[in-house]
Design a protein around this nucleic acid. Structure first.
Length: 849
DNA sequence: ATTCGTGTGT
């Protein structure tokens, strides 16, 4: 180094400074050995400068990350009349890229074109990098096709660009092409490729193959590469493999420590993350902003405010509280761990210039704390502050829309998404589908799905789940067909949703097919098994439900709840109650659903005292606070047991505002026990809350009828029709070969009349020459049925199976049910609200309103 | 004589 300085002075003395070649060499030497300052000094003293002189100084600035000065030099150079060459341009572009100076970069790009340097591999590489970093993917990918003979660096940059823009399969294709072109990928190539291997659709396989390939290619291991491999295994939930790689060499820096810590956090091993942090301190590696961000994230993942606050104090001690990454993690932590939004807001206000992540965390915090309207308002404030939402922000806001079913907000955001082309992101598309489906606009959800570039299991699963929530199980099952046509495989989550749809409809056939699929595809996890218990219960087959239950390796609260409620709703009251004892013995904690089933079971089974015991023990013994639903069950229990006044007392003293359901429940009980005054009172209260509920009028009329007050009964019915109210059409449906057939009765029909019609139907069938034999199932057309009964509206022309087991509910004789599937057992038919148990031609459903 | 690409966080 000293040598350079020695050569300098004699050279000026002998007047050789005009020798440009030597001066440029010296300038380069100065820049490399003494830094940009002295080089700049030397440069200023040069009487003659050429493109190499300018470029040497400029590239030195770029190399030393003095990007702003580098661009200033570029300006000065052009001002002095000196044309840049490819070397100058690449350095200037690199500075633009580092500064995010998109405009300036585009101008230099124009320069590149003007000078005819478009096909230069190095320049094209730098431009790809620039455009990718400036989010200008279209330009970047146009350039990808330009270069013919690039080196490893240009190929790697192109691959990086594709990875950065989430074009994973294209990145992998380019990697294969690169090898085919005879170039060997190096550490840089693998670092970038590894960073994408944890993403959806590629899975664990990809990362492991890349790890194998880099060993096979003999790529030299370094700390950066090691970090990338550790990160890959951690993100693929293979923490043990990550640790194995981590232990292969003793080298470790703050990056690797942070990767290890965040790896533990991502794998929900918070204790080990904290231990790693302690080890890091022992190894004298000071944590940086990223490390603290990971640790704060660890705190929020276990919802520990205490841990979060401890790290917050460390952050303050390290002087990192102004850092944007730490600040964002603080917002997230306080929003998730504290009861109010106040601390999160405080953390947000502490940031000098909040970025899109800060705003998104703030908005998500409000939405998660039930303050959706405020989150919409913040979304507006964010844009007013000049921060553009990203896909995280949009999916967060759409999540809030879905939660409170705000269609207006959804449509607003949809407009924004179309305008900004944010719908390219599948996460945004999925959130939009979810919001529309949640708000009841299934058609709009389908339209979004059709317009999406790609769909994944989540797209269809969330749609099916939302359709289920709204009770449209038929449409939910139709999603399966679309999903198959789209060649999207079901996940365990999809299966859970579809099984729940099948359960909702009580379709045994579809349910069984889904059951087969889940076994074959190895998705028989807890949530799927629990759904199976629910499904078979809903289909009335407790044998199958119990079989599914026994197959569950680790029964949880949901499993037991499904079993208990299945037994209870299928009339196996004592089995339901003893299942609860088994649940306690198995050490599984009951929750509010468990008690709902238990009290319901007692109410059905006329086990008044036992039901009361369950109700009063739930809070005392099991620490489960009764909700309004539990009180409704309690009123039903007391009411059916004839303790009407006591039930009324409970309604008046319970800690909830009574709703019309609870009054209706008591009204029904009054009807059973013939208590006219209390029933009238209940009906009055119901109508105050909802004057347009036909069920209330019908219950009241029935109460009058039974009390031999038919005049009042008729008056009530007349009042109902005067108010334009109609009995909601009775519907029932049956399943034939996996298809659902809905029947609805148009009007009230006499029981004897119906029995007559069944006989007539069978006679008709015989008379018309259709084959009919006793005890034999035959297929008939639905319209033949409609013809025979006259009162049925049958929405399908598909064949329906009928035999003499076709039954009519003796209690709710306003509709007809055809149950053939259970002909060999006790017969159970489902309608929209409840089950009807037929035994010897008698229906056991009581008090049908 | 002067140019290009890598890892930790929502």
């Amino acid at each position: 180094m000293e040598e350079g300085a020695c050569v300098h002075s004699p050279m000026i003395k002998v007047g050789l400074q005009h020798d440009l070649y030597l001066s440029n060499n010296l300038l380069s030497l100065y820049a490399k050995c003494f830094g940009v300052g002295p080089a700049r000094h030397f440069f200023d003293e040069m009487p003659h400068k050429d493109v190499v002189s300018w470029t040497t100084l400029l590239s030195a600035h770029t190399r030393n990350k003095h990007h702003f000065e580098a661009l200033e030099l570029f300006d000065m150079m052009l001002g002095s009349g000196q044309y840049p060459n490819e070397f100058t341009l690449s350095s200037a572009l690199r500075s633009c890229s580092a500064l995010g100076e998109f405009e300036f970069g585009a101008q230099i790009h124009a320069c590149v074109v003007k000078l005819g340097l478009e096909l230069n591999a190095v320049l094209a590489t730098t431009l790809v990098d620039l455009y990718t970093k400036c989010d200008c993917t279209v330009e970047s990918h146009k350039l990808l096709t330009f270069v013919k003979d690039g080196d490893v660096v240009s190929w790697t940059t192109m691959i990086s660009s594709l990875v950065e823009t989430s074009k994973w399969s294209e990145a992998l294709q380019l990697y294969v092409k690169m090898i085919e072109a005879g170039l060997y990928p190096n550490g840089y190539t693998f670092v970038k490729l590894l960073s994408m291997s944890s993403f959806v659709g590629l899975g664990m396989g990809c990362g492991k193959v890349l790890h194998a390939q880099l060993i096979r290619f003999g790529v030299e291991m370094n700390l950066v590469l090691k970090t990338a491999i550790v990160d890959m295994y951690a993100k693929c939930k293979r923490m043990e493999d990550a640790i194995k790689v981590y232990n292969q060499t003793p080298e470790c820096d703050v990056y690797l420590w942070t990767t290890i810590i965040s790896g533990f956090v991502q794998n929900f091993r918070v204790r080990e993350a904290v231990n790693a942090f302690v080890d890091m301190g022992l190894s004298k590696t000071p944590p940086n902003n990223y490390t603290y961000a990971s640790l704060l994230n660890a705190s929020s993942s276990v919802l520990s405010l205490e841990l979060g606050e401890q790290f917050h104090s460390r952050v303050i001690m390290a002087g990192l509280e102004d850092d944007i990454f730490v600040g964002n993690a603080l917002i997230d932590m306080y929003m998730k761990c504290s009861q109010t939004t106040a601390n999160g807001v405080k953390a947000f206000r502490g940031l000098a210039s909040p970025n899109v992540v800060s705003w998104t965390s703030l908005i998500a915090g409000f939405a998660e704390n039930g303050l959706e309207e405020e989150s919409f308002q913040l979304f507006g404030e964010m844009q007013a502050a000049g921060v553009q939402p990203n896909s995280f922000t949009l999916s967060t806001i759409l999540g809030a829309c879905s939660k409170i079913k705000s269609l207006i907000q959804t449509m607003k955001i949809h407009g924004f998404i179309i305008k900004t082309k944010a719908d390219i992101d599948i996460v945004v598309g999925n959130a939009l589908v979810d919001a529309y489906a949640g708000g009841g606009m299934a058609d709009e959800a389908w339209s979004v799905i059709r317009k999406m570039n790609h769909r994944d299991p989540i797209t269809y699963t969330s749609l099916a789940a939302k359709l289920n929530q709204r009770g449209d199980h038929e449409m939910a099952l139709k999603v399966i067909t679309h999903m198959c046509n789209d060649e999207i495989n079901m996940s365990e989550f999809s299966l859970t949703s579809f099984l729940s749809a099948a359960a909702g409809l009580g379709t045994m056939e579809t349910g069984k097919q889904l059951h087969c699929y889940s076994v074959k595809s190895g998705f028989l996890c807890n949530s799927v098994s629990n759904s199976l218990v629910h499904l078979y219960s809903k289909c009335g087959s407790m044998q199958d439900a119990y079989k599914a239950f026994k197959d569950i390796s680790e029964t949880d609260t949901v499993s037991w709840n499904s079993l208990i409620s299945g037994l209870a709703s299928n009339g196996h009251i004592s089995d339901a109650l003893s299942a609860f004892d088994d649940m306690r013995l198995a050490g599984v904690k009951p929750d509010s659903f468990t008690f709902l089933s238990l009290i319901f079971a007692c109410s059905q089974g006329r086990l008044l005292n036992q039901g009361l015991d369950y109700f009063y023990s739930m809070e005392k013994t099991y620490d489960v606070t009764p909700k309004l639903d539990h009180y409704v069950c309690l009123i039903d229990l007391l009411g059916r047991g004839g303790r009407l006044e006591e039930a009324m007392g409970v309604i008046e003293t319970m800690p909830f505002i009574p709703d019309s359901v609870i009054y209706k429940t008591l009204l029904n009980a009054c009807n059973l026990h013939g208590n006219v005054p209390l029933g009238e009172d209940m009906a009055r209260r119901c109508l105050e809350l909802d004057p347009s509920d036909p069920a209330v009028y019908l219950l009241l009329a029935s109460l009058y009828d039974n009390a031999r007050l038919s005049d009042f009964g008729d008056k009530t019915r007349k009042l109902m029709s005067e108010r334009g109210l109609r009995r909601s059409p009775r519907q029932c449906w049956m399943e034939v070969r996996g298809k659902i057939y809905v029947f609805s009765a148009r009007e009230k029909i006499d029981k004897d009349e119906i029995n007559e019609k069944v006989l007539f139907f069978i006679t008709e069938i015989k008379n018309r020459g259709y084959p009919y034999q006793e005890n034999e199932d035959k297929l008939y057309h639905a319209e033949q049925l409609a013809l025979a009964f006259g009162v049925l509206s049958v929405p399908t022309k598909a064949p329906i199976r009928i035999n003499k087991n076709s039954l009519i509910c003796s209690h709710c004789h306003s509709f007809i049910m055809l149950a053939t599937q259970f002909a060999d057992r006790e017969i159970i038919v489902r309608d929209r609200k409840r089950f009807h148990f037929f035994k010897d031609g008698q229906c056991s459903c009581k008090g049908h309103s």
